[in-house]
């Protein structure tokens, strides 16, 4: 059962491996160019473990930002995690002893792999959550540190490999669309994000989108319950 669980988790995380090696690599290259060595990349990828947060972190380090600026901007960029965590509170309820680590490692990609997963009976649920989180963390650390090394040489063309992240989200979205009878949350999600993208622009639309999505889903709740009954 254990081996089967680990194996299933590994297969599930392969798309993230491609994405994280690339995205992490990008971070490592930024760090190297900014004059920070492999050790800094390693430490940041281990203890921060947030893609956008770390990319932003490089510029904060370079500009020797104040403590307050660092705290506020990091919070703004990572505030979306609050929404991921809210929707995982119930799912991660009985996941001892892995729980603190699972919460720590709840990135966009780990979330997208685990948020709606149906786990077979012959799989240890908690171990599976742990393995997915842990494997993804490893890919991220590998990517970030390799980036530092690679930036000294010319890498082969890896242009476009970051599309694996988009593909992961599109595939998850499609799968959820097929599985769920109620398409309203999916429609609300895409529609609100598009509107917010036009209003707030590329850099700032995530937080308003999530607030509006949460509000709308919250207020249409009674209708949905009637619909399900």
């Amino acid at each position: 059962m254990k081996i089967k669980t680990v194996k299933t988790a590994f297969i599930k995380t392969i798309p993230v491996m491609a994405g994280y090696l690339f995205l992490g690599g990008g971070f490592g290259i930024l760090m190297e160019n900014a004059g920070y060595g492999i050790l800094m990349s390693f430490i940041m990828s281990v203890i921060i473990y947030a893609g956008t947060g770390q990319y932003l972190g490089v510029s904060l380090l370079v500009g020797t930002a104040s403590f307050l600026t660092t705290a506020i901007t990091t919070f703004m960029v990572n505030a979306r995690h609050i929404f991921y965590s809210v929707s995982m509170v119930e799912k991660y309820k009985d996941t001892k002893p892995y729980k603190p680590y699972l919460v720590f490692g709840l990135t966009d990609e780990t979330y997208s792999l685990l948020c709606d997963i149906k786990i077979a009976d012959n799989i240890d649920k908690n171990l599976f959550y742990f393995c997915v989180t842990f494997f993804n963390h490893c890919y991220w650390i590998m990517g970030c540190t390799l980036g530092n090394v690679i930036s000294r040489f010319l890498p082969f063309s890896t242009t476009g490999i970051d599309f694996s992240m988009t593909a992961l989200f599109v595939a998850t979205f499609t799968e959820q669309w097929i599985t769920n009878k109620n398409h309203l949350p999916a429609i609300v999600g895409v529609f609100c994000s598009l509107i917010c993208l036009f209003i707030f622009g590329k850099e700032n639309f995530l937080i308003p989108s999530m607030i509006i999505i949460t509000f709308i889903l919250f207020f249409i709740k009674p209708n949905m319950e009637v619909g399900n009954a």
């Binding site: 929404f83 991921y84 809210v86 929707s87 995982m88 509170v89 119930e90 799912k91 309820k93 966009d108 979330y111 997208s112 948020c115 709606d116 992240m165 988009t166 989200f169 599109v170 998850t172 979205f173 959820q176 669309w177 769920n180 109620n182 309203l184 949350p185 999916a186 429609i187 609300v188 999600g189 895409v190 609100c192 994000s193 598009l194 993208l197 590329k202 639309f205 995530l206 989108s209 999530m210 999505i213 949460t214 889903l217 919250f218 709740k221 949905m224």
Partner: peptide
């Protein structure tokens, strides 16, 4: 204890947020 509205959000938020992440990835 998890309040009912958090349980409910846990059911509907994932799909909506994945939809949002698709938009985010294609924003450029």
């Amino acid at each position: 204890n998890t309040p009912p509205f958090v349980k409910y959000l846990g059911q509907v938020l994932p799909t909506a947020i994945i939809g949002m992440l698709v938009v985010y990835c294609l924003k450029d």
